[in-house]
């Protein structure tokens, strides 16, 4: 019977993806993308990849959501300085003729067909041994954690995770390079909007607690540094939107330290291990669990601060442009 659910989900995902690309208005595209993210998270759950589902839920519906809304506002400022209608009626993408009639359309269809064939071929013959699952399971006791996903991400393939953190930091650097490093003005006025303040008061501890939960239980079950980081980052974004910009309170050297803390500790640990005769990121099995927890905590803080900085810088940038 679950075939019915899965096929419905698959149809929904493909339909949403197509609509996302073909929708004539930007607002439609953005909100269809949210629905797409939700359907994708459900699909990951159905596939048994709960870790990925949490990440998808956190990033697609949380972080990307506010970024997209912010971008949407800017587009409406750029394309229509005069009209104040709340709908984005006047930035519809111009369409000349149906895409599937033109040459790029034909190429696209051919490419999609080829891709589908390759996918079908890849799905058709599943490796007998189940890929690397057996190897991971065998080495799990030495990794210091019980969740195979965390073991792979932070022990066996720690290199990848380390570089991923670098990629996120690079994203922030790109935003800073385009917009310039902001010295944030300190608002001394009392924040208005009592409802918003109450919401923030209510949600901040919940977000923090659930983030910490995901971080700590990432070694036994689904969860981990990235998911926790989005939840912690959401606190910063909420506070910023509520008129309490976090980055103005902490001094600049401290925020810089927080930004590079995760990747820096990871790197130093790797070099210390190299100096001790082991290879890069080869933790001694008896300390592996503790080391992974420290790395994950520092990484989560760093990523959270990075995400908040990205949002704050973009938001600040937009404010100045619109004035």
């Amino acid at each position: 019977m679950s075939v019915l659910i899965d096929s419905l989900l698959a149809i929904l995902i493909v339909y949403l993806a197509l609509q996302c690309l073909l929708a004539p208005r930007l607002t439609q595209t953005v909100f269809l993308f949210f629905a797409f993210g939700l359907a994708l998270a459900l699909a990951w759950v159905r596939l048994g990849a709960v870790d990925v589902a949490i990440t998808e839920a956190a990033i697609a519906s949380g972080f990307l959501g506010v970024l997209f809304l912010d971008a949407l506002r800017d587009f409406s400022f750029i394309t229509s300085g005069k009209q104040e209608s709340s709908d984005a009626a006047n930035h519809s993408v111009s369409k000349k003729k149906p895409a599937f009639l033109s040459l790029p359309g034909v190429v696209l269809v051919l490419g999609l067909g080829l891709f589908l064939l390759i996918t079908l071929e890849a799905v058709w013959k599943v490796p007998e041994s189940g890929g690397l699952t057996a190897a991971t399971e065998a080495l799990l006791p030495e990794s210091g954690v019980e969740n195979p996903v965390t073991a792979v991400l932070l022990n066996f393939r720690a290199y990848d995770t380390w570089l991923e953190m670098g990629v996120i930091l690079l994203g922030l650097l790109a935003v800073m390079a385009v917009g310039g490093i902001k010295i944030f003005p300190v608002h001394r006025k009392t924040p208005e909007d009592p409802v918003l303040q109450q919401v923030i008061l209510f949600f901040t501890p919940i977000l923090f607690l659930f983030g910490a939960f995901l971080l700590y239980f990432g070694k036994n079950g689904p969860g981990g540094a990235f998911q926790a980081a989005v939840l912690w980052g959401a606190i910063g974004i909420l506070l910023h939107l509520g008129g309490r910009p976090v980055l103005t309170v902490i001094p600049r050297w401290l925020s810089q330290l927080l930004l590079i803390m995760g990747i820096g500790f990871f790197l130093m640990l790797g070099f210390l291990l190299l100096a001790g005769g082991a290879s890069l990121f080869e933790y001694p099995p008896s300390y592996a669990g503790v080391l992974i927890l420290i790395i994950e905590t520092l990484a989560a803080i760093s990523i959270a601060v990075t995400l908040v900085s990205v949002f704050v810088h973009l938001n600040q940038l937009n404010k100045e442009e619109s004035n």
Partner: peptide, 24 residues
């Protein structure tokens, strides 16, 4: 856990939109 993640982050979108509106 996935459900709670959806739940706690849903508020972010609403607050984001309220702010967007205000600025618009």
């Amino acid at each position: 856990n996935v459900a709670i993640t959806f739940n706690v982050l849903a508020i972010l979108l609403v607050i984001g939109l309220v702010k967007v509106w205000k600025k618009k």
